[in-house]
Amino acid sequence: MKPTDPLESVYFIELPEDFHFTQKAMPIDPTIPLPVQKKEKDDPGTFNMKELTEEQILAGLLTVMAYDSDNKNILYYRSILGKARPNLKKELTEAAILKTKNQDYDLAEEIYASLRGFDPEDIATILNTALFFDQRADSYRTSGLYDDADAYDADALFYYRQAMDAEPAVPDAFFNAGFYYLKKHNFKEAKSCFETYLALTCEMTDDEMGENGLYKKNRAQELLNEISNRNMEDDHFKAAYDFINKGEVEKGLDEIRVFLEKNPAVWNAWFMLGWGLRQQKRYEDAKKAFEKTLTLEGGKRADTYNELAICFMEEQNLPKAKEALQTALSIEPENTKIISNLGYLALKEGNPSDAAAYFQTVLEYDPNDKLAAAELLKMDV
């Protein structure tokens, strides 16, 4: 957790006029207080000018960038950073990406805040921030931290909207936002984003697009075709997801049944029907919906087998549950939801040592997973 006021870790000092660094002198104005990061060993209220290092000043400046971007001296502080570290944005962006990969989310978030404070107009940083919050939300939701996940989803949307409002338009902002809206089952907005992405790139040559760009164009078109062919922007589909997601399951089931009357071959709709029925503990009916999902194009997914396995477990059909979970794991070997469910299955089978191994594996992939940690705590492992 970040401290209540991160600026408490910073001194603002006035340097003597004859002060300079022996190495790569930084352009210091002694009349303007300079933020300096405290050393861990510093006692409260103590500061030794003779021990001041350039790293302390740079760290202090970055803290101001992150948490005090309205500081009256911010332009001066930015100029110091720009001259002292010409490759600052590249270095910090690479560091933030690495921290995100290692799930050091708090530090990654602070780095992105520093980048935005250093250059608020840099759309690449804005888009990277959106992607970071999007990824953090997914990780937290997988870990069972639903309230935190919702909050980070909101942050992601805030920065996606900023990126999509940029002039000139940034195609990748619309491409990535399209996937955000897909995750939210907001297919109207997803369709609009992918259409905009294709419109912005339609006159670019293959050489200009490059291999990755061509992949994105093809993927955007595939998703547009899928949304249109399956009528997934239908209001009933979106309403069904929204109702079920906020716990009004019966209303959601009514909406998805209306959708299925006109669109019986859409795997997503049968999956949503099963999802709602499973929440109502109507496991036999839910199984039928998931089994129908598996017969449709696109429906043989890890999530479908995982949901089917949950139904089998609730009915105490453990062999069938294991079969479904193993199939799910073969599709997505690092999916922590599936691995966790294998742990719960092992507990039901009376194999606590196997269960502990599964839960420990989950924590290796995702140290923030509350459910796996709680199960290991119960087992005193």
Rank of each mutant, 00 (worst) to 15 (best):
L81D: 04
Q279D: 06
P44F: 06
S114P: 07
V36K: 06
A265C: 11
G247S: 03
P86F: 14
D68H: 12
D254G: 05
A355V: 05
A286Q: 06
I126P: 02
D134C: 10
A328G: 02
E211D: 09
F259W: 02
E109V: 06
A373D: 09
L92S: 04
D303H: 06
A220Q: 05
A269E: 00
F259K: 00
A265W: 15
A25T: 13
K370W: 06
L145S: 08
N229W: 09
D122A: 05
D119I: 00
F187M: 14
Y67P: 01
E121G: 07
N48V: 15
E284K: 13
P171N: 08
N212C: 14
G299Q: 06
L61V: 08
L7F: 10
G82I: 03
D150Y: 15
L157G: 01
N245Q: 15
N245E: 12
E349Q: 04
E211K: 11
F158V: 15
S143A: 07
S69L: 14
P16F: 15
V10C: 08
Y305F: 15
T93Y: 09
K251V: 05
A239G: 04
W267Q: 09
Q103K: 13
V249F: 12
C193D: 03
G213W: 05
T142M: 11
A173G: 00
D153T: 13
K24W: 15
E40V: 15
S353A: 13
S340H: 14
S139V: 14
L273R: 08
K24Y: 12
L294D: 00
D380L: 15
T196W: 10
M1H: 13
P33G: 01
Y365C: 05
K183G: 09
N102F: 10
W270V: 03
E315Q: 13
D254K: 14
T205F: 09
M26Y: 11
A190C: 00
V258P: 00
F174W: 11
N368R: 10
I123Q: 03
R136A: 00
